Computed example of a mutant assay.
Amino acid sequence: MRALTTPADGGTRVRPVTVPEPEPRPDQAVVEVRAVSVNRGDLSLLGMLPPGSRLGFDVAGTVVRAAADGSGPPSGTRVAGVAERDGWGERVALSAARLAPLPDGVEWTDAAAVPVAGLTALYALRNAGSLLGRRVLVTGASGGVGRIAVQLARASGAEVSAWAGSAERLKGLAELGAAEAATYEAGPGVTQPVHVLVDSVGGEVFRSAYQLVGQRGVVVCYGNTTRSDLSLPFDWGHARPGVRIRYLHLFDEMPRRPVGEDLGVLLRLVAEGALDPQVTLVGDWSDPDPVLRGVGDRQVNGKAVLVF
Score class of each variant (00 low, 15 high):
Ser208Asp: 15
Gly118His: 04
Arg54Asp: 13
Arg13Asp: 15
Asp276Asn: 14
Ala60Thr: 06
Leu45Tyr: 12
Ala186Val: 10
Leu281Ile: 08
Phe251Gln: 14
Ser53Phe: 12
Thr12Glu: 13
Pro115Asn: 03
Val138Ala: 02
Val218Ser: 01
Val30Ser: 01
Arg240Met: 09
Trp285Gly: 01
Gly10Asn: 07
Leu43Glu: 10
Glu175Tyr: 04
Asn224Ile: 04
Gly11Ala: 05
Val279Trp: 09
Gln192Phe: 04
Arg135Val: 08
Leu230Thr: 05
Leu131His: 00
Gly144Pro: 06
Thr139Pro: 01
Lys171Glu: 15
Asp276Pro: 03
Thr18Asn: 12
Ser161Gly: 12
Val31Trp: 08
Asp262Lys: 03
Pro73Leu: 04
Pro258Ile: 09
Asn301Cys: 12
Leu212Gln: 10
Gly217Gln: 04
Val14Ile: 14
Lys303Cys: 11
Leu99Pro: 05
Gly140Cys: 06
Gly202Ser: 05
Glu180Thr: 14
Gly118Leu: 07
Ala121Lys: 00
His249Ser: 15
Ser142Thr: 12
Leu170Met: 05
Val291Gly: 00
Arg268His: 13
Tyr210Lys: 01
Gln192Arg: 15
Ala80Gln: 10
Val92Cys: 06
Asp262Tyr: 08
Leu152Pro: 02
Ser130Asn: 12
Leu267Pro: 06
Pro16Met: 01
Phe251Asp: 15
Ala8Leu: 14
Leu248Phe: 07
Asp262Leu: 10
Val79Arg: 01
Ala68Asn: 09
Pro103Ala: 03
Pro277Gln: 02
Val64Tyr: 10
Gly87Gln: 08
Pro20Met: 08
Leu43Ile: 09
Thr226Gly: 01
Lys171Met: 10
Gly296Arg: 02
